[in-house]
Amino acid sequence: MLEQTAALDALMRDIVRSSTVKHAAVGAALGCGISVLATANASGCLRSAAAGGVVGAVSGNLAGRREVARRMQLVSANDLVRSIRKSNEKLDHIMTDLPQMLSRQENIVATLGHRKASGELSQDEYESQVAHIRASRAEVAEALILSSKQATLAQHNLADAAAQGQTGLEWHIRAIEQLERDTLSARSTISLL
């Protein structure tokens, strides 16, 4: 289960990355144009501009970058769809396997209780084994909470992209909201004993 929740966490990080990478690239591209106007120390951008004439290149460069930024999607919807689908598949596995794991652990705790009551197991041995189960559950719960937080971050990133003019993100936002709800639902099934 820990491996599955770690894999879900990695997939959710991919969703966060997919929701921000191009936004950062646009910002960097625009930043290069601004740095040419703001400082004489923007060597890479300035050298490119100087090759075609500083004034014409800078104004043409800025106008071209604005047009590219206007037309360019801030996030890749296709990358997000793939990451969302993979995350949904992983979460489906977790939601199937988690109740079985919890049931097995509860049976183990009950058996340990019977063994302790019959004198087969000392109080220290009982507490040690139950503590191990608690720790395992806490790790799974923490991983699910982290995944839900990443879903929230991805939603904010997509809302930001939509506010900046990117269209067609409604499905993605709703799908990530559902991932967040399902992740929190899975978390809510875990009691720490």
Rank of each mutant, 00 (worst) to 15 (best):
Q155H: 01
A28V: 08
R66G: 03
A40G: 12
A51Q: 05
I145L: 14
A42F: 03
A175D: 14
N157V: 04
V130C: 14
V81N: 05
T189G: 13
A38K: 14
H23Y: 14
M101T: 05
D160S: 10
Q100P: 02
S87D: 00
R115N: 09
A141R: 07
T152W: 02
Q166F: 09
G56R: 11
K86N: 07
R134M: 06
H172Q: 15
T96G: 06
L193R: 12
Q155M: 13
S147R: 00
M95H: 03
K116A: 11
I108K: 01
E177L: 04
A28K: 07
A7V: 11
A50W: 03
G27W: 10
K22Q: 12
Q105Y: 12
R70L: 05
R70K: 06
S148C: 01
A138K: 13
V26D: 01
A162M: 08
A42S: 07
E127N: 15
M95R: 12
V140F: 02
S148G: 08
V26I: 15
E142C: 08
G27S: 13
G33K: 12
V75H: 09
D160A: 09
A6I: 09
I15A: 10
A38I: 03
L46K: 14
L74D: 02
V81M: 11
L102R: 05
G113Y: 09
R115V: 05
A57G: 15
S87P: 01
I94N: 00
G56A: 11
L146H: 08
A28W: 09
I190A: 09
A25W: 09
Q105V: 03
H23G: 10
R70Y: 05
R82N: 08
E120V: 07
S147D: 00
G165Q: 13
R115Y: 08
S87E: 01
S188C: 03
S148F: 01
H156K: 10
G52T: 05
L144S: 10
S128R: 11
Q73Y: 02
G113L: 04
S18Q: 11
E180T: 13
L30V: 04
G165D: 03
S188N: 10
I84V: 06
E106L: 02
A151S: 13
C45M: 06
G119K: 03
G52D: 10
T96F: 05
Q123D: 06
M1H: 12
R174D: 15
L179V: 02
V54F: 14
L112H: 07
T189C: 09
S191A: 06
M95N: 11
A110W: 02
V16Y: 12
S87Q: 01
A131T: 04
A24V: 06
S43E: 14
A151L: 07
E180D: 12
R134T: 01
I15Q: 03
A162N: 03
V54M: 15
S35N: 05
A7I: 14
